[in-house]
Design a protein around this nucleic acid. Structure first.
Length: 809
DNA sequence: GCAACGAGCGCC
DNA sequence: AAAGGGCGCTCGTTGC
């Protein structure tokens, strides 16, 4: 058999891939072609040259279709066995300091570990030839397909370069005190109270009556941890004493921990909660926002991102502790409590270790203040999450009944028109109905290029074919969504709706929101409001008795940012002149008419054009966005008009492309990092393409507004909630903050919020403050004839409105 | 019967 | 040629 391998037999590093490709065979070189080039570049980036490594594969034949599984099914093939024997022989001969396993099969056959995502980066003993050590990472061919995996493989390569200098496996040494005796606990408690940093990690189980604490681990150095189970009163007391002490603490996703501890009567002082490794990780790698978190049992429905956020992933890049996260699950099967406590202790000491590494890395990357900002958010957000919002149960029920009745009627009509019963939420049935049965011209999703029956498609179809079924489909879908996603949401026992805000939930620094950790409530950042049909849903969110909701949002915040990021004098001047309306002025310029002659439709269009243009949208998308709302606005445009308007806009304000976009691109090309005016940094790992650029254009304004709102939220908390009796933060919706306060304090609180939100931003040497608008009401809906207690502009609001309607009685 | 995924859609 | 970005939730579908 011909061997496809290369490199000196005295190499320190042996690289093992899975099987040669056709290109490898042809060139008689392992890791040839594009994957090889990529790998060479990654190696040289960490100071290793390919020629000093010995490169080989598990097997030396190419499997059909390049699918390695061919060697395994139905039973291991001879080619695999001989390949492994050859590999063992090569390893004996070379005796390298380190074996690098590229891809899951290389890892599995060399170390016995299954799961490249779990075990990559771990320093492992080689089982194929005992006495050697190995590190696994993603195969370069995989990275070529999934480019964001490169960033993670680069971490592993750094470790590979380091570990290749010596042959020993050096593990972190840690001493654990698991369930110490009462006598030993006295000394341990005393010394833990002296810690410079104390890491805390809880283990708990989800029961019908909420989260139940199982044990808590503490660590005062990476080398030591103590675990007390919660099975005796004195142990819980010890845990309580440590948690409630002023010693500064570090958690891993601690908002969850302090909530569960709080439910057990253990109150962690906020001022002692000074570090969170999940937040530290997020301040270093915002990309982790899309990744999974193995701590949480809910959510995680998204596609697995390469850069994960959980402790398992953090451990793999910040420490040399090998993967251990499966221990936390297997103890359940074995009932081995020692194993469970050891797992808890390891979590605690690893958390401590990670904090130390993060401190240096944050300093180096320049985002120490970003972490401080994120830590400062914990307290106000925790308060909001505990508080929740009161729900009008009667209104909720009647809304549900109303929508259900509408759904039923519309469904009867639809079934009759279609000649069969159809489910509007079944993509399959809808494609059949629209494109097969009704034979309408097929519409395609612009992103996936697949046939679609989504809203845009149906609206487009409706423009040419006036089939009554089309509108009905949309109406049913919308109302089913209202019921399923907003009205059927389980509430907490006290009739309140709570959510869980996630500080690490986005790549931009905006918050994300989802159902609470108890499984009740839902995302409170997407409650309907834009459409008249859905606005009523907001009416069920109430201020508490005797109070009003005071909501303040930044006006055109992202557009302000774009004006300054572009250093566009005419736009800046427009925004800063209170006598001029940006959209009217822009409409006047875009349509080439005097300001006084601008009609509402034109102003509206100008507004949409600005929004679309700022972020690299195309005219087609603008058409969709405008025509989607035609039933409400009466405004409709075509492709040609949209193109002309956008062209005009860019001609009027060339700085958007020339300064803002080009500047982004330059910075990105130079360092792959963009920094916002508020100091948040995002490294862009993706492949260099248009999508990357569009993400980049959106990043700075979106991130700045998110951080600005959160800074304002922190201000509101310290200057209002902690000062004005009865005033409380209620909601955060990206560029808006809602508080509630006593009716008589409403205008005062509104003014205080305005001040709290006046946070100066500086860019290009120009300092500016984005203004905000205020609305006040007894419920979250809009004040209308049929909703007199809804929110209204603060200028129009009078405190006596409620007494007239009896809300305060 | 459950898990994972995609489509679709709500918000900013 | 055409193209915003950022989220989370529900259902239907599919695959194990």
């Amino acid at each position: 058999m011909k061997l496809i391998q290369s490199g000196p037999k005295n190499a320190r590093i042996v690289v093992v891939g899975e099987a040669p490709t056709g290109v490898d065979i042809k060139s008689n070189q392992p890791l040839a072609g594009g994957t090889g080039e990529l790998f060479n570049r990654m190696l040289s980036a960490v100071g290793i040259s390919r020629s000093e490594t010995f490169i080989t594969n598990i097997t030396h034949v190419t499997p059909p279709k390049g699918d390695f599984r061919w060697f395994l099914k139905p039973s291991p093939k001879l080619q695999l066995v001989t390949g492994l024997m050859q590999l063992k022989k090569d390893l004996v001969e070379i005796k390298p300091n380190l074996v690098v396993c590229l891809g899951p099969y290389a890892l599995q056959y060399l170390t016995g570990k299954v799961g490249i995502n779990k075990w990559r980066g771990s320093i492992l003993p080689v089982t194929l030839e005992p006495g050697l050590k190995a590190i696994g990472t993603f195969a370069p061919s995989y990275i070529l397909k999934m480019w964001d995996y490169k960033a993670v493989a680069d971490f592993d390569l750094k470790r590979i370069a380091e570990e290749a200098t010596f042959p020993e496996i050096i593990r972190p040494e840690r001493t654990f005190h698991l369930d110490p005796s009462r006598e030993d606990s006295i000394g341990l408690l005393a010394s833990l109270l002296e810690a410079d940093w104390l890491s805390v990690d809880i283990e708990c189980v989800n029961t019908d009556s909420g989260w139940k604490l199982s044990c808590v681990g503490f660590s005062d150095s990476p080398q030591r941890a103590v675990v007390w189970p919660c099975d005796e009163v004195w142990k819980v007391q010890t845990i309580k004493e440590l948690c409630e002490s002023p010693v500064r603490k570090v958690f891993q996703n601690g908002t969850f921990d302090i909530t569960v501890l709080g439910d057990e009567g253990i109150v962690v002082p906020y001022e002692s909660f000074q570090w969170d490794t999940m937040l530290g990780h997020h301040a270093l790698f915002t990309e982790c926002a899309g990744g999974s978190d193995e701590m949480s049992s809910m959510g995680g429905k998204k596609k697995q991102a390469a850069l994960m956020k959980g402790l398992g992933f953090q451990t793999s890049i910040y420490t040399k502790e090998p993967y251990y996260k499966d221990d936390g699950k297997t103890w359940h099967e074995t009932g081995d409590k020692q194993m469970f406590w050891r797992y808890n202790a390891l979590d605690a000491s690893v958390t401590h270790e990670i904090r130390g590494v993060q401190e240096k890395e944050l300093e180096e990357f320049g985002t120490t203040d970003v972490l401080k900002h994120e830590v400062a958010l914990i307290e106000p957000l925790h308060k909001m999450m505990q508080r929740g919002v009161k729900i009008d149960m009667e209104l909720r029920e009647s809304l549900k009944a109303d929508f259900q009745k509408q759904i039923d009627n519309l469904q009867v009509f639809l079934d009759k028109s279609a000649g069969q019963s159809v489910n509007v939420k079944s993509p399959k049935q809808m494609l059949e109905l629209l494109y097969d049965k009704l034979n309408l011209p097929q519409k395609y999703n612009h992103k996936t290029h697949k046939p679609t029956a989504n809203k845009d498609a149906i609206i487009e179809l409706g423009e040419k074919h006036n089939h009554p079924i089309l509108q009905t489909i949309l109406a049913i879908r919308q109302r089913r969504d209202f019921v399923e996603r907003y009205l059927d949401v389980p509430l907490d026992a006290d009739g309140r709706m709570r959510c869980a805000y996630d500080i690490t939930g986005t790549r931009t620094g905006r918050l994300s929101s989802r159902q609470s950790i108890y499984g009740s409530g839902t995302n409170l950042q997407n409650i309907p409001s834009r459409r008249p049909e859905g606005e009523a849903i907001r009416r069920m969110f109430l201020a508490d008795r005797g109070k009003v909701l005071v909501g303040r949002d930044y006006k055109q915040a992202e557009a302000w940012l774009v004006a300054y990021l572009s250093n566009c004098e005419p736009l800046i001047e427009l925004f800063n002149n209170p006598d001029r309306d940006v959209h009217t002025e822009n409409a006047s310029r875009i349509f080439g008419i005097p300001v006084a002659e601008v009609k509402p439709d034109q102003r509206y269009l100008a507004k949409k054009v600005i929004h679309a243009s700022n972020y690299g949208m195309g005219p087609n998308r603008l058409v969709q966005i405008v025509n989607e709302d035609t039933p409400v606005t009466g405004v409709r445009i075509g492709f040609k008009e949209a193109s002309q308007l956008m062209e005009k806009y860019f001609m009027l304000f060339p700085e958007i492309k020339e300064t803002f976009w080009k500047g982004c691109e330059r910075e990105l090309r130079y360092s792959r990092v963009l920094t916002t005016p508020l100091g948040r940094k995002r490294m862009f790992f993706g492949r260099w393409d248009d999508k990357l650029l569009r993400e980049a254009y959106a990043y700075i304004p979106q991130s700045t507004v998110g951080d600005l709102t959160n800074k304002a939220l922190i201000n509101c908390y310290h200057r209002i909630e902690k000062v004005v009796p009865g005033a409380e933060l209620m909601l955060q919706v990206h560029d808006a903050i809602y508080t509630q306060c006593k009716v008589e304090d409403a205008l005062r609180v509104s003014a205080m919020m305005e001040e709290a939100m006046k946070i100066p931003l500086t860019y290009n040497g120009k300092t500016f403050i984005i203004p905000s608008d205020c609305k006040i009401g007894y419920n979250w809906g809009v004040r209308k004839d049929d909703n007199p207690l809804g929110m209204v502009d603060s200028e129009k609001w009078r405190p006596d409105a409620a007494t007239q309607t009896g809300q305060l009685a």
